[in-house]
């Protein structure tokens, strides 16, 4: 269970990006975060694994206070939280396989990993995860030789190497075309359904959010303005989230 209590983030420039955000996520949920650009989705997701330091508030995960963790504890927490980014964030010049293996860095001894030595078991696991996202045949290519959709699947395989209990996905399909978006979303959904991994995923399009989320949390100007089931978002709610001038667009 992930519990977020009165979370606030004020950036050094003075932007108040999160305002008293509180909610609880049960294990196994697929939560979709929506909201306009600048509403604070990325800030919220990054606060959970402290890529962004929250200004105040608490994040309690399975009884452990993430916000209070020191360096070492934080690393142990992070290795159980997979993260997927809009820009994939692969290391372009490394092979696909090595990129996947980096998901294991939190588990291996530091000195061994500095020599880029990986045990056969780790390599086998990496290949299995690549197989799972359907690109085992690309393992030896350089990461930047792959298409966007393939790169995002590598990123998913990298997250899987962490054997995560939680996956944070920050607009994972915003750089992809609609068809590829769906194929990538299906893999993330599969991790949620089959492996029971809790997913918190921000999405730009409400249509995608409705299709994949079991629960939707909407942010506006750093505040939660909606928290409920996808089907509860009617026209009035929609305008509360996206503003009076917005119109719904579909993505298929």
């Amino acid at each position: 269970m992930l519990e977020i209590r009165k979370l606030n983030k004020i950036y050094p420039g003075g932007v108040h990006a999160l305002k008293d955000v509180s909610f609880t996520v049960e294990d196994g949920e697929f939560v979709v975060l929506i909201g306009l650009s600048g509403s604070g989705k990325s800030t919220l997701l990054r606060s959970i694994n402290r890529l962004v330091e929250p200004t105040s508030g608490q994040i309690i995960w399975d009884g452990v206070d993430i916000t209070a963790a020191d360096h070492k504890q934080l690393r142990l927490i992070r290795r159980n939280i997979g993260m997927i980014f809009q820009q994939f964030n692969l290391v372009k010049r490394l092979s696909v396989l090595t990129n996947v293996l980096t998901g294991r860095l939190g588990y291996v001894s530091q000195w061994r990993s500095l020599l880029n030595y990986w045990s056969p078991e780790e390599k086998r696991q990496a290949m299995l995860n690549l197989e799972r996202v359907g690109i085992a045949d690309q393992a030896w290519k350089r990461a930047d030789e792959l298409s966007g959709g393939q790169q995002q699947r590598v990123a998913i395989a990298r997250a899987l190497m962490q054997e995560p209990k939680l996956i944070l996905a920050d607009e994972p399909v915003a750089s992809l075309d609609p068809a590829t978006s769906h194929s990538v979303m299906k893999y993330i959904l599969e991790l949620n359904r089959e492996d029971g991994i809790t997913v918190i995923c921000s999405l730009h399009f409400l249509s995608l959010a409705r299709e994949y989320g079991t629960r939707i949390i909407a942010l506006r100007d750093g505040r939660i303005v909606f928290d409920g089931k996808p089907e509860e978002i009617d026209d009035r709610r929609f305008k509360e989230i996206y503003g009076e001038d917005a119109v719904q667009v579909e993505i298929r």
Binding site: N49, L51, R75, L76, I77, R78, R79, N80, I81, G82, M83, F85, Q87, F88, N89, L90, V91, K92, R93, L94, T102, G103, R104, L105, G106, Y107, Q110, S113, L114, A155, R158, M161, Q162
Partner: peptide
């Protein structure tokens, strides 16, 4: 590109590991 640094940090890697895997190749 700071992206890979964030991604590797997020896996629970140490600072040194992050530099070796995310900075050095670039």
């Amino acid at each position: 590109d700071p992206g890979p640094i964030e991604a590797i940090t997020a896996t629970g890697a140490t600072r040194l590991q992050t530099i070796i895997y995310a900075v050095v190749p670039q």
